[in-house]
Simulated scan of single mutants.
Amino acid sequence: MRTRTPARGPAFTGLGLGTAQLGNLGGVVDDADAAGALDAARDSGVRYFDTAPHYGLGLAERRPGAALARRPRAEYVVSTEVGRLLIHSPRTAHRQDDGGFAVPAAYRRVLDFGRDGIPRSLDGSLRRLGLDHVDVVYLHDPDAHWRQAAGTGVDTLVAPRDRGVVKAVGVGMNQTAMPAGSVRRCDVDLVMVAGRHTLPDHSARDALLALARERGAGVVAAAVHNSGLPATDRPTAGATYGYRPASRALTDRAAAIAAVCARHGVTPPEAAVAHPLWDPAVVSVVTGARDTAQSAGSARRVTADVPDALWAEPAGLGLVPGLDPVHRTTGRRA
């Protein structure tokens, strides 16, 4: 699998494995399936693995840590996120986590983007991963704490970057305005934007991507299937978008895009992975998996042959933005 290297930071494979589902997002994933997803990703050529303490209260860090411990450390890139401390909470361990993960609530999340909280968060992640360093650290969804995150938070991450504990620092969010602000005003190397550079949602294109190219910041596109709508060959009743029922307008547009894809011999899931990689600012597309089959399926999608002509037709219909010359310089393959 080809790699892409931002101006500052490590080389990324065009496809990365996100581990929220391996933290039991929305339901239990057993250890065998989790290990199968991780091994299948690596066997397919994936060398970028993204995780966070928030996912499964640390489970999504422990599982990749155990799987990757069998591999040479120089072979792979690991990113994690800071801003949520996991505080042991034995009094709630009999309950289930209320953050959307099917795990016992043996820890509670405490938001902290300060000078003390960020090093503590990173140290905890390193212990759970079993690593002495990670390659990338993102500030995790600091929406309500943006002033602190953009100031103290980024400044605090620069020190471990300069010591070599991390290779690159950035922010990871589900919006575009604050990540764009971090590229414009802060010393960040990367931004991870979830669900905003996708077939249904093009908001990152003008707000973030052009600025990232100008400033030399790399972009990681996550949640490219928007929780479900472009994840099947045809949108079905009950399809979700952003973890909520999709509107009629979105479902109709997804059906129109699916019809165009079919005429070009491409599936919407393949197009959803290929679309973000057209932009030269994008260094990787991160998708999740719950088992071997899903992990291997993502790898097949990212290497699918998606012809240039596919994008001209939906652009002419106003379904997706057209490709401008800057996109055509890079090609689509991961």
Rank of each mutant, 00 (worst) to 15 (best):
R147T: 15
Q148R: 14
A149L: 11
A150N: 07
T152R: 10
G153K: 01
V154C: 11
V154T: 10
D155F: 08
D155N: 13
T156N: 04
L157M: 11
L157A: 08
L157Q: 07
L157D: 03
V158H: 10
A159Q: 10
P160V: 04
P160T: 02
P160D: 03
P160Q: 04
P160C: 06
P160K: 03
R161Y: 06
D162S: 12
D162M: 11
R163D: 12
R163E: 13
R163W: 01
G164L: 03
G164Q: 02
V165W: 05
V166A: 12
V166T: 15
V169T: 12
G170N: 09
G170W: 00
V171K: 04
G172S: 11
G172A: 13
Q175P: 11
T176M: 05
T176D: 04
A177G: 13
M178N: 10
M178V: 08
P179Y: 04
P179G: 07
P179S: 08
S182H: 06
S182G: 12
S182P: 06
S182V: 12
V183S: 05
V183M: 10
V183K: 02
R184A: 15
R185V: 15
C186W: 03
D187G: 00
V188K: 10
V188D: 07
D189N: 10
D189M: 08
L190K: 03
L190A: 06
V191P: 08
